[in-house]
Design a protein around this nucleic acid. Structure first.
Length: 440
RNA sequence: CGGGGCGUAGCGCAGCCUGGUAGCGCGACUGGUUUGGGACCAGUAGGUCGUCGGUUCGAAUCCGGCCGCCCCGACCA
């Protein structure tokens, strides 16, 4: 993409409404436009990141055996009356009346609807286990939206729902999601720590929050250092195997938010193993049994092997996709701007042509641009007629992992500079060596 | 929902106290000079001062209602 033809409205100054760093940087990098409190438009640059995060979430859900569906944002009130939550949910739920005076709502979550889909199509225990998910916009009319996309009213969420024959099978499904979440956040470049959690209005008795460590996080967390050092991606995973030992090995080490913190247990950890940090919740998983499928709620049954009806055991699993955009920035930035992990970066490489119009610089920047695109790399080519300082500042602000800086002097000698955004180390190399670094 | 703050040009702000022609910086546009870390000169465009009402000869400015946004707290992916 040539920057001269792209829509990237960067800002030099901080908008006054944005107080936290991710919100400021998202506005300054031209990623979002606020439309109302907690409601945002996503501009091209931000939309690319959102799409990249959703892609990784989707890949890991699919790998764990889930099936993607897409449920509507608008739901009929009757479903929620069946589960009893229409009145329980309170004013956070946005209620709508259509032209026929029918009561609708903008979905804050989808347990009822997915349960309705399940009960109308699944009849036999042979169809279990089943896990359905979708990535869809939710609306929760928060009293006080804040922190940009970190706590919006409208937000993009991946929510998955598992159905199983009995509790052991449901726990196995829970464990698969537990591991899938660890892998997902690791691939997003984040250190996510599972912590035992309250279940809140979703209900149930088995639940973990996934919290990433970031200096600017909203809650205080206390974790065992070995959890932070551990790399789930290096371990590999077999979803057909019993994952309980994996889950146990993660949950046996100390990790708690300040609400559930036990200073005595934490203090008993070995010196050097106690980490106090700030955290941001990015995922939450629940096992809640037959809360929605049971006879007092939506009364869902499938026929068991013995011919008798049984209520499936359920769980639900959420990842805040739009929140993750902000959370990743909170966890990965410096004074100059964003530092994207490669996996979610809107473009992998940014090329700066310091002097468009200079024959040597144009040729070299153009050749590198063409070669990278031909190799399938997303690359943003700053070919604008701007001063060098403006281009450097913008490129650092938008945080692409790699920068290639082509100036007239170096280009004449056949060399350009390659700079890693994270860390800032740079090398002056010839074209072939630059391409080798980026593509090799 | 309790407490606090703020709405003046695309962004950041001054002007308001003490009523009298709406300003500054950045950004945008035009021309020129510049060119390896947010240049310089000249010119241009852009604002019913959130909104409704009141006071007044006259309101961005004083008074009141409403709307919107931000921050702290309680609650949440």
């Amino acid at each position: 993409m040539r920057l001269s033809r792209y829509f990237l409205p960067t800002l030099k100054e901080n908008p006054s409404e944005a107080q936290i760093v991710s919100h400021r940087l998202m506005l300054r990098a031209g990623m979002i436009r606020q439309q109302a409190a907690g409601i945002y438009s996503w501009l091209p640059f931000g939309h690319r990141v959102l799409t990249n995060i959703a892609r990784i979430v989707r890949e890991e859900q699919d790998a764990a055996g889930c099936h993607e569906i897409l449920m509507p944002t608008i739901q009929p009130a009757e479903l929620w009356r069946e589960s009893g939550r229409y009145d329980d949910y309170g004013r956070e739920m946005l209620r709508i009346t259509d032209r026929h005076e029918r009561e609708l709502l903008y979905g804050p979550t989808n347990e009822e609807m997915v349960t309705d889909i399940f009960r109308s199509h699944v009849r036999s225990y042979r169809d279990l286990p089943l896990n359905l998910y979708h990535i869809q916009w939710k609306f929760r009319d928060e009293v006080r939206p804040r922190f940009g996309v970190m706590r919006g009213r409208e937000f993009l969420m991946k929510d998955a729902y598992s159905f199983d024959l009995d509790k052991p099978a449901a726990i196995a499904a829970y464990n698969r999601m537990f591991v899938a979440y660890l892998r997902t956040f690791a691939r997003l470049g984040l250190k996510a720590i599972p912590m035992r959690a309250d279940t809140g209005p979703i209900g149930g008795d088995h639940s973990h929050e996934f919290i990433i460590l970031a200096e600017t996080g909203e809650s205080q967390v206390f974790v065992h250092a070995d959890l932070v050092a551990r790399d789930i991606l290096a371990e590999g995973v077999d979803y057909a195997a019993d994952l309980q030992p994996v889950v146990d090995s993660w949950t046996s080490l100390y990790a708690a938010t300040d609400e559930k913190h036990d200073p005595v247990a934490f203090g008993a950890l070995a010196d050097g193993k106690r980490i106090e940090a700030r955290g941001i919740e990015v995922g939450h998983i629940f096992y809640f049994g037959t809360k929605y499928s049971g006879p007092d709620a939506m009364n869902v049954t499938v026929q068991g092997a013995d011919g008798k009806p049984l209520h499936p055991e359920m769980g639900s699993y959420g990842i805040g996709v739009s929140r993750l955009v902000g959370a990743i920035i909170e966890a990965s930035h410096d004074e100059a701007g964003i530092i994207w992990p490669e996996s979610v970066a809107p473009f992998r490489v940014g090329i700066i042509n310091l002097k468009p119009g200079d024959a040597a610089a144009d040729a070299m920047a153009g050749e590198i641009y063409d070669a990278l695109r031909a190799a399938g790399t997303d690359v943003l080519y700053d070919d604008r007629d701007e001063r060098a300082g403006v281009k450097f500042a913008d490129m650092d602000l938008i945080g692409l992992p790699w920068q290639v800086i082509v100036g007239p002097r170096g280009a004449k000698e056949g060399r350009a500079e390659i700079k890693r955004r994270r860390g800032g180390e740079r090398h002056e190399l010839d074209k072939a060596a630059i391409l080798e670094r980026l593509l090799g």
